[in-house]
Structure formats: C-alpha cells, structure tokens
C-alpha cells in the first residue's frame, strides 16, 4: 500500500509518516504544491492525503488534477479549515473524505483503511481477525461463524479497534470517532465504557477471546497476537 502525504508542516508530516509506517504502509511525502504535483503525476498511489493550504498552491487544485487525469487513488483532504464550503468543494471535486485538523492519528488511520477497503472491490470483502469476521458492506459481524448483533455504536467501536489493532487508542479518540464534533462538549468517557462493556460481552458470549486490554489512564489496546 502506497500513500502520498502532502503536508507543509514538517513536524506533522513526520509524525503522520511514522504512524502510518508502523501500520505497514509505504509513505512518501511532499511539502509544497509543486513537489506534490510532480510526485502525484509520476507515481501511482493507493491513497493521497492532501492539505488544502499549501505553499505555492491549493490542495484543492491537486485533487482536481488527479481527478482530471483519471487517478484511481483514494483522496483524503486534511485541512485546518473546518469549513463546510471547503469540505463540499473538496468532495465535489472528487475527494473521498475530509478530516479537519487537529485530528487523531488513529482516526486518520481508520479513515484510510475504510477508504482502501471501499476501493478494493475486487479484493476480499470481509475482514478476518482470528475468530472474528466482519463484512463492512453489510455491517455484519460473526464470531466463529455465528452472527453477533451489534448496535451501531458497538459496530463502529469494533471497526475502530480492528483498524487500529495492536495500538493504544485513547478514550478521547474513541469518543471523537463515535461522536464526531459532538464529543467536544461531552464528558463522554462513561458511556464509552458502557458501549465497550456491551461489545465485549456480546463477543465473549459467542466464545470470542477478550482482545481489549485496558491501558491504565489512557485508553485501550485491541491486541491480536
């Protein structure tokens, strides 16, 4: 999996690169508009992360160029402007997703995975993690072949864990994933716990191992050996 990261802030570029690298992606980066168009024009990527405000140009123009030449890469816009106009413009141009800064790396990761999954129609349509099988298109989960009925939040939580397996995810990033902007004003940790408890119980009832480790103070780790 090859990812092109177009971001002008060096520190942010470095951390995103490192995180995605740990996920097993090949990550290349570009710091300005000119370099970004060069790279995007020459190589094929599975996914392109593009910032809107760039030196020497706008990220939206890169999206346009990619779409004009018929690129098959999935595009996620990452912008400091959480403006609905920019979002609509970006999605209209053909971007697949829009993530406002400051975002969580776990969130970015799960968005990239979801995007790649959607793009790989010819590939495997289900995600298999040991005894758990997930069919994202139908939002269906089964353990050892037995279907598990999950609520929307429980399903989202499981997907988030699976996308970020073997990683520590904080309660705040879970809250943000489940609640989006609404999590801002909420003291959401208690009811995350409720959803997590229910999810664990439903999975374990079907004979699933408990993969969720509580990381003291911070959050959880969905640990698959």
């Amino acid at each position: 999996m090859k990812i092109l990261l177009i971001e002008d802030e060096p520190d942010l570029r470095k951390s995103i690169k490192q995180y995605l690298h740990q996920e097993g992606y090949v990550v290349e980066s570009a710091a300005d508009f000119v370099k970004a168009t060069e790279k995007a024009g020459v190589y094929d990527y599975d996914c392109i992360l593009v910032d809107i405000t760039l030196p020497k140009g706008s990220g939206l123009d890169i999206v346009k160029q990619l779409k004009d030449k018929g690129s098959k890469a999935g595009i996620i816009i990452i912008s400091a402007k959480n403006s609905s106009t920019d979002k609509i413009k970006g999605l209209d141009l053909g971007a697949d997703d829009y993530l406002a800064k400051p975002f969580d790396l776990a969130e970015l990761n799960s968005r990239i995975k979801a995007l790649i999954r959607r793009r790989n129609f010819d590939g495997n349509k289900s995600i298999i993690v040991n005894e758990i099988t997930i069919v994202p298109e139908q939002r269906q989960v089964s353990v050892k072949g037995e279907a598990v009925t999950l609520t929307a939040k429980e399903y989202d939580l499981l997907m988030f864990f699976v996308s970020n397996k073997n990683r520590v995810v904080s309660k705040n990033s879970i809250a943000e994933h489940l609640w989006g902007d609404d999590s801002d004003q909420m003291d959401s940790h208690d009811f995350i716990y409720v959803h997590l408890r229910n999810l664990r119980k439903k999975l374990m009832d079907k004979g699933c191992n408990d993969y969720v480790q509580t990381i003291y103070g911070i959050g959880y780790n969905f640990k698959i050996d």
Binding site: L12, S15, P102, L105, R167, V168, Y216, G217, I218
Partner: peptide, 29 residues
C-alpha cells in the same frame, strides 16, 4: 489548528511506546 495537530499526533505516537510507567500515562492522559 496545525500546531494542535502536531501535538496531538506526537502524543498518539508517544502513547504507543511500550513500558510506560503509570505516572507517565497519567501525564499523557
């Protein structure tokens, strides 16, 4: 927003370090 994103991203990476002590985790939180 961008500086905040930098801090947040680095924090996520820091959280992945193995062998964090409890008080360090508290601070990260």
């Amino acid at each position: 927003q961008t500086p905040l994103a930098v801090v947040k991203a680095n924090l996520s990476l820091l959280m992945q370090s193995p062998n964090l002590k409890e008080d360090e985790m508290d601070r990260l939180q």
